[in-house]
Computed example of a mutant assay.
Amino acid sequence: MRDKVLVVLEERGAQNTRWLTDVFGDGITGETPIYSDLTWTTKYYSETFDLYVDEYDDLDEWIEEFTSDDCAVLRDALAGVILVRTGIATGDHHSQRIANSLSTDDMFLVWLDKRESVDDRELPLPWEVVQLEETARDRELNEKSGAARLKEILDVHTWPGTDRLEQEPADMDELITLMREARLRCQDMSDDEESQRYAMSLAEQIAKRI
């Protein structure tokens, strides 16, 4: 079962791993190589997984070991890989070597770039390049970066054997009644600001019922 996430650090230390705590929760600092039975929970599902934390001094040497037969069992158990790296070399071959060693159809692969400014943030699929720190470009394009984007990736990942949380279906009769009452009430309102406030309140009520 693919229920393990591998984080590969360029270097350890509080300054370089604080994002781990932001993403995976208190106590996840990267100082321990394995964190077992963590839980990732969203509105729709709850999944138990293990977090593995490794590091490298020489990326080529690390890839050589990771792609060897000795690590085949680990590779087959991975739901995703988050590789921390400063920059992306032109024609980078590291990402392709890692991807070629994996069955990536049901995995996520993230290249977490530590540079302060990123223009060439593209890598061949299935990799996604995520900027560790928010940049002016992210703000301009309204794109998430760092821990916020990593959380999104984990949220939408299709975990094997995911335990979907049961939800009560929306009561359509109740929603229709609510809308009718709202229409009648709005007809009696002459103040635009009051109407807008009521519309926002109504939208919140409907969202809670869906």
Rank of each mutant, 00 (worst) to 15 (best):
Lys43His: 05
Leu51Phe: 01
Cys186Ser: 12
Ile34Gln: 08
Asn100Ala: 02
Arg12Ser: 15
Lys43Cys: 02
Glu143Met: 07
Ala207Gln: 13
Lys208Arg: 15
Val156Ser: 09
Asn100Ile: 04
Leu109Pro: 03
Val53Cys: 00
Glu11Gly: 05
Gly161Gln: 10
Ile82Ala: 00
Ser101Met: 02
Trp19Gly: 03
Trp19Arg: 03
Pro126Cys: 06
Ala199Ser: 14
Val7Ala: 03
Leu83Met: 13
Val156Cys: 08
Trp62Glu: 07
Glu64Pro: 02
Ala72Asn: 06
Ala147Phe: 01
Gln15Asp: 12
Leu202Tyr: 05
Glu10Val: 06
Val156Asp: 09
Glu55Phe: 15
Asp50Pro: 11
Ala203Asp: 06
Arg115Val: 03
Pro33Asp: 14
Trp40Gly: 01
Tyr198Thr: 11
Ala207Ser: 14
Asp119Gly: 12
Leu20Ser: 00
Ala89Phe: 10
Leu78Gln: 10
Arg2Asp: 02
Glu168Thr: 13
Ser201Pro: 04
Val118Glu: 01
Gln205Phe: 10
Arg185Asn: 10
Ser68Trp: 13
Ala89Asp: 12
Gln196Glu: 15
Arg183Lys: 15
Arg75Met: 07
Glu128Thr: 14
Leu6Gln: 02
Ala72Phe: 13
Asp60Leu: 01
Val7Glu: 07
Thr90Glu: 13
Lys144Met: 12
Thr17Trp: 08
Asp92Gln: 03
Arg12Ala: 10
Asp119Glu: 13
Val53Ala: 01
Thr32Arg: 14
Trp111Leu: 03
Ser103His: 14
Arg139Met: 12
Leu38Asn: 07
Thr32Trp: 04
His94Trp: 00
Leu9Ser: 10
Ser46Ala: 03
Leu51Cys: 07
